[in-house]
């Protein structure tokens, strides 16, 4: 049971152009990888990964549509509604871990990196379109052994994709688990890269969501609820999904190509 509650914004951080972290106080415990349904009256209610899971919770919002643009304009003392947390979250792995985040995917992954609690066994790979969109770099550095960055335009780190870096790292070192979050095309390539090296992974998916609470079925992938059984799925689960990396459902429930 996840009752709606109204929280007050206590800090606003501009992470990059069009990317904002909002912090607010909420006592209800959140596991890394879980999400809130975030309500802005008169605008919308949208799923948002929790990027800070301590009592001072946070969400990191990239402006991609009406709701996220409105969230990006909020100021300290503004109020939003939240319900949740929803979803399963990452199972915090033992052994050595490689973390791969594309774009705002880092927002969901960093709490998991911090929850591992041992920088000596985590490497983080961050992919972004351009230098200005490389997210949460300092936080990643504090919680891990190595951080590497790639950008599509080569303006920071190496030019290329985060999956290129993953392939190299899996070639060079042994990892027990890969955690990933980002656009689905990236995740689909990431799963392939992990499977080639027989390394298990947990990837966090995104789907259009209405209820967020496991009822309406609008977020399903192969009939499985991303809001409840996901958003984090294991490689074993992902391999069985025909829609993974190929199609999703629109607001009407029609199948559309990714």
């Amino acid at each position: 049971m996840n009752k709606q509650r109204i929280v007050t914004i206590t800090s606003v951080t501009k992470e990059a152009p069009g990317i904002t972290t909002l912090r607010f106080h909420d006592e209800i415990k959140v596991k890394p990888g879980q999400f809130y349904m975030v309500w802005l009256p008169r605008v919308d209610e949208v799923p948002m990964s929790v990027s800070y899971t301590s009592v001072e919770k946070g969400i990191t919002v990239k402006e991609v549509g009406e709701a996220t643009r409105a969230l990006g304009k909020l100021k300290i003392r503004d109020q939003i509604g939240i319900r949740g947390p929803y979803g399963n979250g990452y199972r915090i792995p033992k052994g050595t871990v490689l973390v791969a985040g594309g774009g705002t995917g880092m927002a969901s992954l960093l709490p998991a990196v911090e929850a591992i609690g041992d920088p000596g066994r985590v490497d983080v790979l961050i992919g972004a379109k351009t230098a200005g969109e490389v997210l949460l770099l300092d936080r990643a550095r504090k919680a891990s052994r190595e951080v590497h960055v790639s950008t599509d335009d080569g303006s920071m780190g190496r030019k290329g994709t985060v999956v290129d870096m993953v392939q190299e790292h899996l070639e060079m070192k042994h990892y027990d688990m890969v955690l990933g979050c980002g656009p689905e095309r990236m995740l689909s390539a990431l799963l392939k890269a992990c499977d080639e090296k027989s390394v298990k992974c947990q990837l966090s998916l995104e789907r259009y969501m209405k209820c967020g609470a496991g009822l309406c079925g609008s977020c399903v992938i192969d009939g499985i609820r991303v809001c409840r059984e996901g958003p984090v799925f294991s490689s074993a689960e992902l391999r069985k999904m025909k829609e993974f990396g190929s199609s999703k459902r629109d607001e009407c429930g029609c199948s559309v190509k990714l």
Partner: peptide
């Protein structure tokens, strides 16, 4: 369908 919120718990 309607815009969100569409559910109250």
């Amino acid at each position: 369908g309607y815009p969100n919120p569409t559910l109250v718990e």
